[in-house]
């Protein structure tokens, strides 16, 4: 079966972003960009399913400006077979991304779509659920285990109370949580090979999707800073401070 994996280009996990001085946006000039960590887990899961013989083809999709081809190449180096870029310089909100993915799902007819549960820039945690809604598919969000069976997939989900397992009929959408797997590193030969793998380009227009934003960011600002407090010498002083100064115990 075929799997579609969505990957997003985001500011690297280790970069601490700051708002621009005029408060219009975050400052992403000259910062390192990477594949969203949750998307990397999604690619890894697809590759493992292929290695198990469950999956025959992995298509990696990304959306955005030309540069997001780098993240598609990363997915190809990790083991995806071919890539699709939906090219646009316009702002893409999760609903628009879900609509573009829906159009690609109709074209590619994958049995499984794997996405990260959220991207570490917008922290929205929406796209997978919205794609599932628009295509009428079942959704296994926040997955920590995925088992494909005949015509269905069992997904163990990380929920507030612990773990929940659901069974979804195929085709289905899965979004990955942190502990689904530990992504491999791409080897140099695979990085070289990835450059030769096919990468098609399309646009939201060609897919017939209206990507007009529905929300507008009026302002971005740093959160209220917390002041560092004091160092206490020992446990006795700590307990004393908590009792008499902070009055929390």
């Amino acid at each position: 079966m075929k799997v579609l994996v969505a990957v997003k280009r985001v500011v690297d996990y280790n970069v601490k972003v700051r708002p621009k001085a005029d408060g219009t946006d975050v400052d992403t000039a000259n910062v390192k960009m990477s594949i969203n960590p949750f998307c990397e887990i999604a690619v890894e899961e697809a590759v493992r399913l292929k290695e198990k013989g469950v999956v025959s083809e992995i298509v990696a999709v990304s959306m955005g400006p030309k540069q997001c081809q780098e993240q598609i190449r990363t997915a190809l180096a990790l083991g995806a077979d071919r890539g699709i870029q939906v090219e646009t310089d316009a702002e893409l909100q999760p609903l628009a991304v879900a609509k573009c993915l829906k159009a690609l799902v109709e074209k590619e007819e994958p049995q499984l779509v794997i996405l990260g549960k959220q991207s570490i820039d917008g922290d929205n945690n929406q796209t997978g659920q919205m794609l599932a809604a628009l295509t009428g598919m079942g959704q296994g969000t926040f997955a920590s285990e995925v088992n494909v069976e005949e015509g269905s997939v069992k997904v163990t989900r990380e929920v507030d109370g612990g773990l929940q397992t659901v069974e979804l009929s195929l085709p289905a959408v899965v979004t990955t949580d942190l502990r689904l797997n530990e992504p491999r590193y791409a080897s140099l030969p695979n990085i070289m090979k990835a450059k030769k793998k096919p990468l098609d380009t399309t646009t939201p227009d060609e897919l017939g999707v209206d990507i007009a934003p529905r929300t507008k960011t009026l302002k971005v600002e740093p959160p209220a800073e917390r002041q560092a407090g004091i160092k206490v010498a020992d446990v006795a002083e700590l307990v004393e401070k908590l009792k008499s100064e902070a009055k929390v115990i």
Partner: peptide, 23 residues
Amino acid sequence: ATTTGKNMLPRAAALLDVQPISD
């Protein structure tokens, strides 16, 4: 914005053709 809400609400929003606002 619990795991139950985060799982369900975007799905409902997409059915309403709405871009939800998280958290």
